[in-house]
Amino acid sequence: MLYYLIFAARSVNSQTYHLFMPLTIDQLLLLVSTLLFAGNFGLVLWMVKTNRYRDSRVGLLVVSFGFVVQMALLWVRGEAHGRCPITNSGEVLVFLAWAMIIWYLLFGSSYRLSLLGMCTMPLVVLLQVLAMLPGVYQTLPSEPVKQVSAVVELHAATAIMAYGAFGLAAVAAGMFLLQNRHLKLHQTSPTFFVLPPITKLFTTLMRLLIIGVLLLAVSLGVSYLAPTPVPGDKLAIGYAVLILYVLLLGCRKVLGISQSAMAWIVMGLFVLAAGSIGFMTV
């Protein structure tokens, strides 16, 4: 079907094409997946506010469908580039959103973390909306590249997967802080009853951090095998992010910094790390 769409889009006369389809196929896929994720957020938020929330498959199906559309988008762009689609900031943002959804689908279902999806979606939508901005989103190249280094592709992809794990850890941290506030101040709200237990949230946060650190370490290790050296500024940023997360895990282990302090730092670190996304292109 995708081939058909691409074929149809390419074969129609340019004027008619713009009349009936003002967006290119990849832009359309980006818009649809963003709308699906935003729809999931709106639906779950409405369910929580009206006391109708329960872990339903409908929400998960919407996210899964959005994920498939997102994959199609990355595939279309990957085919056009002839390489992993992380060649500009817009693509990196979409790839990062995709990585967060993967981690959500893995962790959300394994640990039955209710509302993790609802809390992840605003961040995913924000990343994809930023990706859509003029100047950030680049049009598809007319020709794919001739030479691709698998090592460099692996280096960048694992780095983005690591950032995805850090992003989801930041979401879990936000949920932890909200539930912690409820419990400390003896307050209840509709979210109090549907947020996961704080112990579970903290365990998830820690596991995501460890996964992120391991993936980033692999990414940086792999970069030394690249046929042409990875630029120094990119490596320096990668190492800085890795060291900060390792230090944080070490502080928790050795100094026993509190769970709420950890949660705040994890959120802050992700904001810092996300600021370096522009450096992650290949």
Partner: peptide, 20 residues
Amino acid sequence: QRGATSIGSVAVELAERIFG
């Protein structure tokens, strides 16, 4: 059926919000 309505059940509910 939301929320606990006795001291004992409130204690249980809070414990479950903390520990699962």
